[in-house]
Amino acid sequence: MLNRSLVSSNSNEWATPQKLFDMLDSEFHFTLDPCSSHMNCKTDKHYTINENGLQQDWSGEHVFMNPPYGYQTSQWIEKAYKESLRGAVVVCLIVARTDTSYWHDIIFKYAAQLTFPGGKLMKYIALAVIT
């Protein structure tokens, strides 16, 4: 059963644990965090909700994407795929709800890497690398 605390809250923005980010950054060398706040951003170049990362250009970037959880996740996944066609490498930290349409329409078809990290805190999380 899905842990509801992972997908519901007073906010749909979640900070990524620094240790996880650092591990991924050592491999991917991120240049952009398109869905963050000024307080939880992981790269110098980042977009907040006011700048709307869905409307920005990510081409050529190495993107770390921990999208807001909820109904907009599919829009972020679609954006990641479209930007990958323009040269972006996007690492998506997403809820492992493989029954959703974006998993079948995009993740399973186009992810170059797919990892389910496991462990107590990461039990319901997946990493999808779209290139």
Rank of each mutant, 00 (worst) to 15 (best):
Q113I: 08
I49Y: 15
C92R: 00
V91I: 06
S8L: 09
W14L: 09
F64N: 04
T16H: 09
D44F: 04
P17Q: 12
T100Y: 06
L24Y: 13
Y71P: 02
V95R: 11
G70S: 05
N40Y: 05
T16D: 08
A128C: 14
E27S: 12
S37Y: 08
L127S: 01
A128N: 10
L121Y: 14
K19I: 15
Q56E: 14
I106N: 04
M1Q: 06
Q113D: 06
C41H: 15
N10E: 12
G87T: 11
V95F: 12
N40H: 06
W14V: 09
I94T: 07
W58L: 05
I130N: 04
V129Y: 14
I77V: 15
G60P: 12
V129P: 12
T100Q: 13
S26T: 07
P68C: 08
L2V: 04
T48R: 03
Q113M: 09
G118F: 13
Q55D: 15
D33M: 01
W103D: 02
N3K: 07
Y69F: 14
P67F: 06
Q55G: 04
D99S: 08
S9K: 09
S101F: 10
I107L: 03
T100W: 01
G53T: 04
W76L: 06
Q55M: 14
N12E: 07
V91C: 09
R97A: 14
N10F: 09
N66Y: 11
K79I: 02
E78Q: 15
E13V: 10
